[in-house]
Each structure stands twice: as C-alpha cells, then as structure tokens.
Simulated assay, not measured.
Amino acid sequence: MQIKDRTFVISGGASGLGLATVRDLHAHGGYIAILDLNAENGNKVVSELGDRTAFFEADVSSPPSVSSAVSALVEWVKHTKKSIGGVIPAAGVGFPGKLIDRHNEPIPLENLELVLNINLRGVLDLIRLCLPHMTTTTPTEPDGERGVIVMVSSSAAYDGQPGQVAYAASKGAVRSMTLVLARDLAQYGIRAVSIAPSYFESGMTAAMSQKVRKSLEGVFEFPRRPGKGDDFARMVRHCVENPMLNGECIRLDGATRMPSRL
C-alpha cells in the first residue's frame, strides 16, 4: 500500500519504537496521528515534523480515553481528507514479576491488569474503533486494498523469560490473533501483520541494569547489538508497502533466542 497521502494512527508514538515509526512513515509522505499519554513529548514531535502530524492525548488502558482520541483524530482526517490507511498500536509496557514471590505471596492482580490492559485490551480497542473508518474508504488498485494493521508482539511470545508471565501472555495473544484478524478483515481488503522484536533500544529496556544488558548481549547472534528504532520502523514500512505480507508474525531479532536464565 502506498504510504504517501495516507493517515497512520500510531499509539505510543511519542517515544521509542513508536516514535521511530512516526518519523519513518512521515518521511515517506504519510500523515501521522500520534496517540500517547505524554503530551509534552507528543506536542514536541508535532512541532518538529509539521502539519502532516497531529497529537491526541490518550491512555490506551482507558476505553473512554481511547474513544475520545479516535473521535478527535477522525475529525482531523476529515479536515485533511487523507483517509486512514494503517493502524500501528505500539504502546506497550513491561512489568516484571513472577506469579508467586519468594515469600509465597501471589503477585498483585493490578500488576497483571496493567500489562494486559495496555498490551492487549488497548491494542484491540484502538483497532476496533479505527476499523469503521477504514472499511468504507475507496479501495486501491490492483488488489482492492484499503489498509493494514501492524501490531507489536515480542520475542517473549516465543521464549519468554522468568518474571515475564503477563508480558509474554499479552504479546503471545497479539501473535495468536494476527491470522484471525487477517481472516476477519480480508473481505474489506485490510491486512493484519505483527512484528516480534527481541531486545531493542527503547524506554522499556533503558530501565534494565547494566548487568542484565551485558547478559542479553551475550546471547546475540548477528548483528551483535540491540535492535534500533530505525530497524523496527523499516520493518513496519515494509509491512505497509508489501501486499503479500498478511496474517503473519515476523520475528525481528537477529536470530537471538532468549535463554531461560541470564
């Protein structure tokens, strides 16, 4: 699908992998609707990139907040007359913790809910609210395509490490629903793809200790470095532009497989 003159809705677009994606799609002519909780960062990005971008404050764990943001961005799309061509729900969190701790206490339910609400429910919520504004757009030639959903899974969906039970569950769910979503949306000419990055430089991994970072670097195959935002953004762009990419979760990990212990 052509990126130029299409609108792309990107949650978590004010930082990390989401921001890298914002910059890349904008550089290729896209109109970008950034959804994020960090209004200061979001407005900075809009000031930097200009009038083909707009920021909408949203807490993806809150259905009313997501609904309000989508309503506002739809009005912006009506103004620009650049139809929604893609949704990239890139907002995500990791909140490590085993289900039972060393004191034989179960993990607080709210810790699990935080991860699942943002990484899974928030993804589905954003997609479902955007879809009615994609299914009615004019299909493009030659395939009758209307748009693409690019979700963010994780290597944790395949080889999650200790303490990642909620995170792995949420990212595994994204991986599992990719084909179902592709099948559900095929009649509308909308594709669904997910990307499963491993250790990438991001706000989430920035919180890791130096010891954990060094241990992770020891299991890299090639290239022997963490992934960068540009690596991820290029894959998103390829998913957008290649119409034969559909229903698949693509590992983006340099052949790295996470060990059970570091």
Rank of each mutant, 00 (worst) to 15 (best):
R225S: 04
N119R: 06
P223F: 05
I250V: 13
H26Q: 06
A192H: 00
P142M: 04
I190A: 00
G42C: 03
A182Y: 01
N117G: 08
K78I: 02
S11L: 06
T140I: 03
V46C: 12
R224V: 12
M258K: 09
V93L: 08
L129S: 04
V150L: 01
M208A: 13
M208R: 11
G92V: 06
S155R: 12
T256H: 06
G97M: 12
C249E: 15
D125Q: 10
F222H: 15
D5M: 07
V174A: 04
K81R: 15
H79W: 15
L112D: 02
G86W: 04
R213A: 05
M177L: 15
Q164V: 01
F56P: 09
H238G: 02
R224C: 04
I88F: 00
D125L: 15
T136L: 12
P89S: 12
R257D: 00
L185V: 04
E48C: 01
V115I: 13
T178N: 00
L109Y: 08
W76T: 00
T53F: 08
E141F: 03
F95S: 13
A33F: 10
D51K: 14
Y158M: 06
A58Q: 04
V219K: 03
L181V: 01
I127D: 00
R183E: 08
P243K: 13
H28G: 04
H26D: 05
T80I: 11
A14R: 08
D143H: 15
A39N: 09
E145H: 15
S176W: 06
N111C: 01
F220D: 02
D230I: 12
D101G: 02
V180I: 08
L25A: 13
Q210V: 11
C239A: 12
T7Y: 10
P197V: 01
C249S: 14
